[in-house]
């Protein structure tokens, strides 16, 4: 088995550690490491562009946003009761999905159906217009409408956050009014 399989075990262990942690600050840090490790694995799987994005987004911006939210909410997760039903649901779902993937091609199989439809055509086309990075060609030219949609989604999400957080803060309880003095030192 290749090294990717071993790293997958490490990723799952990290995910379980995030599930187990009650200290949310530590969980956010582990989440950052999780993203960086998955970026490394994407590089091993030849997906350099995906790895690039995941390293910048997951380990960088996402973590900053989660930490920003933690500064505004609570650093500690309350200890809840252990629940059996979610665990059983997840194990059942996992078993069903693994049963469902048994017919799929093995890792790295060059004869798999996905590699013989439009992919060779995209690589050939990219070569013909002299743009070496096939991912850029597909992203901006072949699937230009798709990327236009994605950019609009990013814009809309930014607009949504602006509407939600850009206005004045309103607090529910009188004792909560004392809170701003405590939190104002975090960012300054």
């Amino acid at each position: 088995m290749p090294i990717e399989a071993l790293l997958f075990v490490l990723l799952v262990v990290l995910a379980l550690a995030i599930a187990h942690m009650r200290d949310l600050f530590a969980a956010a840090m582990l989440f950052s490491i999780f993203s960086l490790l998955s970026a490394g694995m994407f590089t091993l799987m030849d997906a350099v562009d995906v790895a690039f994005t995941e390293a910048a987004v997951g380990a960088g911006i996402s973590t900053v946003l989660i930490l920003g939210t933690l500064a505004l909410t609570s650093n500690e997760e309350r200890n809840g009761p252990f629940r059996l039903t979610p665990l059983l649901v997840c194990l059942g779902l996992g078993a069903t999905l693994i049963y469902g993937t048994r017919d799929l091609p093995v890792y790295g199989d060059p004869g798999a159906v996905v590699h013989h439809h439009v992919a060779p055509e995209y690589i050939e086309g990219s070569h013909n217009i002299h743009i070496p990075n096939v991912v850029t060609t597909v992203l901006a030219s072949y699937r230009g409408y798709d990327t236009f949609g994605e950019t609009t989604v990013v814009f809309t999400a930014g607009l949504g956050v602006l509407l939600l957080l850009g206005g004045a803060a309103r607090r529910r309880d009188p004792e909560e009014e004392a809170a701003p003095q405590a939190t104002s030192e975090v960012t300054s």
Binding site: V57, V118, D146, E150
Partner: peptide, 18 residues
């Protein structure tokens, strides 16, 4: 390697963070 999954996932990550 097949570039199509890379393209789809690249945009999915950025939309995911948004």
């Amino acid at each position: 390697s097949n570039p199509i999954p890379h393209v789809l996932m690249l945009t999915a990550i950025v939309v995911g963070v948004a």
